[in-house]
Design a protein around this nucleic acid. Structure first.
Lengths: 350, 350
DNA sequence: ACCGCTTGTGCAATCGTTTGCGCAATACGG
DNA sequence: CCGTATTGCGCAAACGATTGCACAAGCGGT
């Protein structure tokens, strides 16, 4: 192990003290230009690397933001993280990324470690089974800025960034109705998760607004959070179930791209024409939805934009005095990306 | 800001000193069981959160590993990161993830910040344009353990984890030949990157070993590192070029799944039958390659396994005395995942 | 009664930076 | 020539946990 050189080493060589060097490095106005030059010269000469640990300890600020995601290998979360990074990197913040793997206890330990290393803030999306929020309350109570995104906890008074799932679903279903669909099924996610609840609400409202009957049989609640290949399978199974109904539906709005794609594969294998006999809309605009045949209509949530917003919320909270601070909530509208799985050729666009 | 409670607060309440508390918490044998109980009780009573910054400063160890990836929104890197995490989390290490965005200068600053915060090690894949390696040398010279993966620098004497690209390519091309293909084109990546170089070598060797002619016209070198949608386009353009050749090739081995998929889309649009007129093999086994129609044959690199290995290399180096330490190199064999894009029906499997 | 040993605890320095405060030197106005 | 700014820098105390060393008390053996 080579001995690391410190601020005092520099000071010694320059016949001055650590304080002066420190101030010179932080461009303090009380240090003369000449001295600063000298210091900078020595710094590069000795290849000095500041020790941010020491600095963090003294300043009580680590310049690190903790990010907790259920999993980082979904495009959704990956591009969200990229979105955060884009914004905070120029302010000198680094990210430390924890995966909860959708498990409550990993979520807890992640939060603990992040607090231990004294992150300056935490940006998180809650795991699918989390119903107790005391660990998030702890973050607040320690005075650490918190931003929740996507799977948020609406009852907590913190910064929020989420997508307007109600709108997205409403938009998707209205689109299907415009295409002439009259019996629209819905692959709904587990209803204790807000986003899935809102998508179901949007679905219902759209149906009602267009004076169509709501059929509970067509609403299938299932766990849409798994690895991609499993959800694909789930989609196939559900598609089979729907196709065997006496009065077969003519469209599906799925809360997951992958379930929609699984369904699509089933229909192709069983010669049910998509979109003409069965139109499909997914959710999230995963890359794969653009290459599957027919390509899948879906909702793009502009995830990296969500990341940007989350980052900005954090930065805003940092510069605001606690007594003046009020949490901010951003609700972003998803965009319907219309592709072939829902585009019937004999329909005249309105 | 609520005042954080420290080890000395605990000590004061217990009429003892910080040293005793510290030792009690680290389960030092010199502290009596009784005292330890008392300490633990107070700890939970006061909701004490250890300050790892202070600890890191004193111990010269942060329990953080820096990971540098070109981009985290590729499945490849995401699952690699997951692979690392799996192994190191139980040893108490956290990950801090930096994206170089394939840019040399971001790579440099990432390394600098990681060294500043005194990470215990760095696991990195080099950016596509990096040709000067002094920043990686710096990591070594500071005595910080380094593991390079996938896009490695073979001339550096550090831990390496990479995939046997030569083997993968050889395997892919042999498979195409077994399927009856005789004029096989190759979408090659830029040749200053080792992995693409090795894939080209594997391609060439397989052709030669099967006594087929090598046609330079069929080898197209192009930049395969971009966002997915752009590579898709590149694939289409190249496919067009190939399809217009007087002697049209009957197969493509692409160093990128996305380029292969782009080509596939072009062939479908232009009624060139895949795999019968044109067989296709991609590289990486991205999820989308399984849903495109026909599904794409490709090479799976077992990325999360690569992550496991990288993590183990790091842990090994950590526990080994520098004077006994020798870098370890792991070369993993990719697996050919045979799907419909290359599977000709009239071929009897051998 | 004395010595040595074990067991449990405290003292104080240390990790590398930052920062409030004080002090000298110079400048400037009257 | 004195008083008051202004400029430039050093002293020393933090930040919170860790750790080498000393030391005290208790015990047993001679």
């Amino acid at each position: 192990m080579k001995k690391k050189i410190t601020i005092s080493d520099i000071a010694r060589e320059l016949n001055t003290t650590a304080s002066t060097v420190s101030r010179a490095l932080s461009d303090d106005s009380r240090i003369s230009k000449a001295k600063k030059k000298l210091v900078w010269k020595k710094v590069s000469e000795l290849q000095y690397q500041p020790n941010s640990i020491a600095s963090a300890l003294r300043k009580g600020k680590s310049n690190v933001i903790g990010v907790i995601v259920p999993t980082s290998d979904r495009q959704f979360f990956a591009s969200f993280i990229r979105g955060i990074e884009e914004i905070v990197r120029e302010e000198g913040y680094r990210l430390i990324i924890c995966q909860s793997d959708e498990q409550y206890d990993k979520e807890c330990t992640s939060i603990d470690s992040l607090l231990n290393i004294r992150v300056d803030g935490i940006i998180a999306s809650v795991a699918k089974n989390t119903v107790d929020f005391s660990h998030f309350k702890k973050i607040e109570s320690q005075g650490v800025p918190l931003v929740l995104f996507d799977r948020v906890i609406e009852t907590m008074n913190v910064n929020l960034v989420y997508s307007d799932d109600y709108y997205g679903a409403y938009r998707a279903v209205s689109h299907l109705i415009e295409q002439g669909c009259r019996r629209i099924a819905h692959f709904a996610g587990k209803q204790h998760i807000h986003i899935y609840q809102n998508r179901l609400k949007g679905y219902l409202q759209a149906i009602r607004d267009h004076h169509l009957p709501v059929d509970d049989e067509l609403i299938i609640e299932t766990d849409l959070i798994h690895d991609t290949y499993s959800i694909l399978e789930i989609g196939k199974v559900l598609a089979k179930k729907l196709s065997e109904m006496p009065e077969r539906p003519d469209a599906i709005f799925s809360s997951s791209d992958f379930a929609a794609m699984g369904a699509l594969q089933f229909f192709k294998e069983n010669n049910i024409a998509v979109p003409d006999e069965m139109a499909l809309v997914g959710y999230s605009n995963d890359f794969s939805s653009s290459v599957i045949e027919p390509s899948l209509t879906t909702l793009d949530q502009h995830t990296s934009h969500m990341g940007n917003e989350a980052a900005r919320h954090f930065l805003y909270q940092i510069i605001t005095k606690p007594e003046y601070f009020k949490p901010r909530k951003t609700l972003l509208k998803p965009e319907l990306v219309i592709r072939n799985s829902s585009l019937r050729r004999n329909v005249i666009p309105t």
